[in-house]
Design a protein around this nucleic acid. Structure first.
Lengths: 341, 341
DNA sequence: CTCGACTATGTAAAGGTATACAAGGCCCGG
DNA sequence: CCGGGCCTTGTATACCTTTACATAGTCGAG
């Protein structure tokens, strides 16, 4: 005698049991609606008796609001994305909204994920560490679904974006290393397909090239993973003019680089080699690493994202919010070098 | 001239433009339904022209299937939960299902989150690192929504559960340390409110007490965080009969303990102190830690979870799946001690 | 006592789709 | 040439709720 799903009570069942109209049931479950306390109480009693739970699908069909925000978040391997997700979810739940998660494994899945988001009638779409095709962006715009890109900006795309000021962060990272006496620089790069990584690297390189006696002696892709950072550091350090400073485009690669430098090459950090990363993931603060890094200001970014998706529906120009980078100085970099001052 | 949401095309609009019935539109977007290729193509052309996207809310209202699975996941601070989420999401998306995330900050929010899950008519509920009240469990059962607890089991609750064999894992961890010559043991505990932590600890302590010359000299709560593990280790090691082995109930606390022992107390691992953890988070494999640990078999756990929520609807007894623990031996523990053999 | 302004309640339509059922077309065997 | 079976298409109802509108009731002011 399996209980079938259609045995679930609906508002009509509740209305009948309570001896009221179906509208009364709806109002009893809608805070602030015009209903007397007695009637509301009568409805709630009947509802409890029938194990009634309002069907928010039916409700959303009418109100055109699901209280669901889609989040596209690929490559969960990097802890910064987990932190981003946690913050996004936390802030949205404060507003009684939920995150519907999409983790496409491949760029070819992006459009399919976006399509499914629209089918679910989500109230907004947040895209982290991924991009969106022009076609889908236009479709979202047409349907009046706000889209916010978190952490990067693609010029010309009609979507909002919130991102840290990579140029500023990269510049300050480079300057810190220069002040610490750095002259020969290695770079552990991210994939060139990610604009965020390219911007960070460009900012760092630009500032280094502006220094008369500094030079970038090696750039190796670290593939955005710990292992990739480890290998990249080995490749970078294996040369006659060994770098005295290494900039990693993400912390997770920086951790790999530090471990390679210390445990494989037996060099000291920061004495032999100074290291700096980007993101400020939790592990960067661990005593084993104590990594100096350019922080990705998640809390502020998500705060602005919330504001953007709450904006009144207009087809106004997409907003670009840029947040100042904060340099978190720890012990993987040298203090100001006397000679450099 | 803001475009209103009601301007979104629906299946009737598409049907009219294509000169077909509304049923044809539905069939054109339902793979495997009875429709000729020409008609389907005609519908798709019209749909594209109108930027039509099927409304899965309306569809779910009828099919009673949302392809949404709710995941309750508090305390995202521990990386193991992020890994769990990634695996759950990955596997579900393979089946064209999506994760609706709930991250209640407080035990008092559990019931409210569960209630909202039911309102969204989710196909199943997965609960990680949290529990569910008897009342809500009964409600889910009544509505035929499968509930799977991931990582723990609460006796008497009418829900499925999938979990590692904590007893086996704890026993093997203890034995490894004993073989390595451990005699005085410290334990960094988790909150006693989490049955998982209690089970792990009980297994470890039981095995240690079965060894004639071993003793547990200190048990300190590490609060499930890196910082907590750090402080707990300091407390544990600050005594005359300093432990020669420390068991931490989670890896994240073990990392804190290792850092405290090495960088604050300047002791060697594993020579002065052997350390072992639980979970096998990614950082445990980093060269800076190389932490021996009892692995939480996420892939297998999620695989079983998928099977459970796909089971035909019955009110059969809830299943309990227990998975063997795997001990991942790295360099934070000593090899078998000659004297112990 | 009456009218107007409110509040509380009910009625009915709308929101977008899936599907049972009926109907039409076609082919093939007899 | 006819009937049965199959495939395609359309019609109409069902899914569950919100809300505009109408109605009935309450209360105070004039």
């Amino acid at each position: 005698m399996t209980k079938r799903r259609s045995d679930r009570a609906n508002s009509l069942d509740v209305a009948r049991l309570a001896g009221v109209s179906i509208a009364a049931v709806s109002r009893a479950f809608t805070p602030g609606s015009s209903i007397s306390d007695e009637l509301a109480e009568k409805v709630r009693r009947a509802a409890r008796q029938l194990n009634y739970v309002p069907n928010s699908l039916a409700s959303s069909l009418i109100t055109r609001q699901t209280n669901i925000v889609a989040l596209m978040l690929p490559r969960m391997s990097n802890p910064i994305y987990a932190a981003m997700l946690a913050e996004v979810s936390r802030r949205l739940e404060e507003l009684n909204k939920q995150v519907l998660l999409f983790t496409p494994s491949d760029e070819s899945d992006f459009d399919r994920s976006l399509g499914r988001m629209l089918e679910y009638q989500v109230d907004a779409i947040v895209i982290a560490a991924a991009t969106i095709s022009n076609r889908m962006a236009a479709l979202c715009l047409d349907r009046n679904v706000p889209v916010v890109m978190l952490g990067r900006h693609v010029p010309g795309l009609p979507v909002h974006s919130v991102r840290p000021n990579a140029r500023d962060g990269g510049t300050r990272a480079a300057e810190l290393l220069l002040r610490g006496g750095g002259r020969r620089f290695g770079i552990v790069a991210g994939p060139s397909s990610l604009t965020t990584m390219v911007e960070r690297q460009r900012a760092v390189v630009d500032r280094l090239q502006a220094a008369p006696d500094a030079s970038v002696v090696a750039i190796v892709d670290g593939g955005l993973t710990y292992e990739g950072g480890y290998e990249a550091a080995l490749a970078i350090m294996d040369r006659a003019d060994r770098p005295d400073s290494v900039v990693c485009m993400t912390d997770i690669m920086a951790l790999g680089a530090m471990d390679a430098i210390r445990h494989r090459l037996s060099l000291r950090i920061p004495d032999d080699v100074a290291i700096i990363g980007f993101d400020d993931i939790a592990e960067a603060a661990h005593a084993s690493y104590s990594l100096t890094t350019v922080k990705t200001p998640l809390v502020e970014m998500v705060g602005h994202m919330i504001d953007l998706i709450a904006m009144p529906e207009t087809d106004a120009a997409p907003r670009i919010v840029e947040i100042d980078a904060e340099l978190v100085v720890r012990r993987s970099t040298r203090a100001a070098h006397p000679a450099a001052q």
